[in-house]
């Protein structure tokens, strides 16, 4: 088990290396640089700036310098927020994004899973159809539409919830962004759960459970749901990625100081280190989540235990 985790973490290193390399050079392909303003800087100033940030060196040298600093856990200075290093920026914003993303993931699993099970148990009845209709809506309406509408109704019209800001992670501030971020995931999880649950309820071993007079709870939760949840668990990896990237929009709309908005700002300002830092952090999250998914899977299904 421990060996498995270690080998997975080790195998993440080449993946991260590739991601860093590709995004580093892709960034540099984009025209313009961090100090290209509308009114050009004086040549001397520009030269000094380039020197300070190593931009006067060849691309290869810059790449090696960057790799070296990343290896020592330093993502370098920000080119745009000149008084901050990337590490400092992330120290403030990453916990906020994680809180937002994990809350949304938990909400999506709880609500989506519950709806999916209910729909499967009432297959082809009214409840099923309405849950699936709502789920379809949830997937199709983009969150930059949902967010303003929810804000308008709950924040402006009724005045129950603040329309933006983080407020240090206060509950009222979290409701709107978390719900908006979770909605499409709720829809996906509900659909997935419904599908696999219907299959599980029809499976032979669930028939055995029913034939042996086991209670409804045992049949549905213990024998059907545990197997049915497996596809949902597999989806957690991509879901984590979707939530992290989804938060780019949400954080911008609600003015939340998370890492999502750095994606946008970093890219627009050609803040090379900032973009690279965000890419690396997101990649790490996706890798770790996929590992968690595999471990969870093994916990649920004895057939895929790693020995």
């Amino acid at each position: 088990m421990l060996r498995y985790v270690l080998s997975r973490l080790l195998s993440a290193i080449p993946t991260l290396f590739l991601i860093i390399t590709i995004s580093f050079f892709l960034m540099r392909v984009a025209p313009g640089g961090p100090f290209d303003l509308e009114r050009p800087l004086e040549a001397k100033v520009m030269e000094n700036l380039n020197k300070i940030y190593n931009l006067d060196k060849s691309l290869w040298e810059q790449y090696l310098i960057y790799l070296k600093s990343v290896l020592s856990g330093d993502f370098g200075p920000s080119f745009f927020f000149r008084d901050f290093s990337i590490n400092e920026l992330f120290a403030q914003s990453l916990p906020i994004s994680m809180q937002l993303g994990l809350s949304a993931l938990a909400l999506a699993l709880a609500v989506g899973g519950f709806l999916g099970v209910i729909a499967a148990l009432r297959q082809n009845k009214g409840v099923d159809y309405s849950v699936m209709a709502v789920a379809t809506l949830g997937v199709t309406i983009p969150n930059f539409v949902v967010a303003p509408i929810l804000t308008l109704i709950l924040g402006v019209h009724f005045g129950w919830l603040p329309v933006g800001g983080w407020g240090g992670g206060a509950f009222v501030n979290m409701v709107l962004p978390v719900v908006t971020l979770a909605l499409p995931q709720i829809a996906v999880v509900a659909r997935l759960t419904r599908g696999s649950m219907i299959e599980a309820l029809r499976s032979n071993h669930v028939r055995t459970a029913r034939a042996y007079g086991l209670s409804g709870y045992t049949v549905v939760v213990i024998h059907a749901l545990r197997g049915a949840i497996l596809p949902v668990v597999s989806y957690l990896g991509p879901a984590a990625a979707a939530l992290l990237t989804g938060s780019v929009v949400i954080e911008t709309i609600f003015g939340i100081p998370g890492i999502g908005r750095y994606f946008v700002q970093g890219a627009l300002n050609r803040d090379y280190t900032l973009v690279m830092g965000t890419v690396v952090v997101v990649a790490c999250f996706v890798i770790i989540f996929n590992l968690i998914v595999d471990l969870l899977y093994a916990m649920l299904d004895p057939r895929v235990r790693f020995d």
Binding site: S203, A209, A211, Y212, G213, G227, L300
Partner: peptide, 24 residues
């Protein structure tokens, strides 16, 4: 029904490979 099935009347099925829950 559950008072009878599994206690007084029990069944075995055609598909031995899938009639038991793989997870327990």
């Amino acid at each position: 029904l559950n008072k009878i099935r599994g206690a007084k009347v029990t069944m075995i099925f055609q598909e031995p490979m899938t009639s038991l829950d793989p997870l327990y």
